[in-house]
């Protein structure tokens, strides 16, 4: 039972060698190649997935930043336009006030001037009437110049009394 049989050992070697060679061709090469390819594929896709995620995160961050900047800009613009509108309103009001004041001023001046003109005209008329009347009454014109002076003084006094 414990005796070595050289023939059996040789058959073992031959069988094992043939099995190794056949399996190398039939099994180990395709199997190990497929396994290694798969391992490479898996690590490759893992690497790619990580890359894609990083890329996506970067993009998201960029977009968020851009969005925040845009919002900031919009806020700024709104603030600026509000300020501008306020200023314009103030300007228009100011100008309107000024215009109105000017108009009133001018109207006042016109009224005053016309009043003065009318007063002067009235005086002239009165003086003429007086001179005419007086000369008719007296019949002669003593001294027209002197006369006129007296009348003017009288009218002035009259005007003062009236005022």
């Amino acid at each position: 039972m414990l005796q070595l049989d050289p023939g059996m050992m040789i058959w073992t070697w031959v069988t094992f060698l043939v099995l190794l060679l056949v399996l190398r061709k039939v099994a180990w090469k395709p199997l190990l190649k497929a396994v290694e390819e798969r391992e490479q594929q898996i690590s490759e896709s893992l690497r790619r997935a990580v890359e894609a995620r990083e890329e996506a995160e970067k993009l998201l961050f960029e977009q968020q930043e851009k969005l925040a900047a845009a919002q900031e800009e919009v806020q700024q613009m709104i603030k600026e336009s509000k300020a501008m509108a306020e200023k314009m309103r103030q300007d228009i009001l100011e100008k309107a006030h000024q215009d109105a004041e000017k108009l009133v001023e001018r109207a006042k001046a016109d009224i005053e001037r016309q009043r003065m003109q009318m007063i002067n005209a009235l005086r002239q008329e009165v003086a003429n009437l007086v001179v005419d009347t007086t000369s008719k009454l007296v019949g002669v014109v003593v001294d027209e110049k002197k006369h006129r002076q007296i009348i003017d003084e009288a009218i002035a006094q009259f005007g003062q009394q009236q005022n």
Binding site: M1, Q3, L4, M8, W11, T12, W13
Partner: peptide, 12 residues
């Protein structure tokens, strides 16, 4: 269970 076979494998 044959010592010659296992010896053959061990020699390999």
């Amino acid at each position: 269970g044959n010592i010659s076979v296992t010896a053959g494998l061990a020699v390999i």
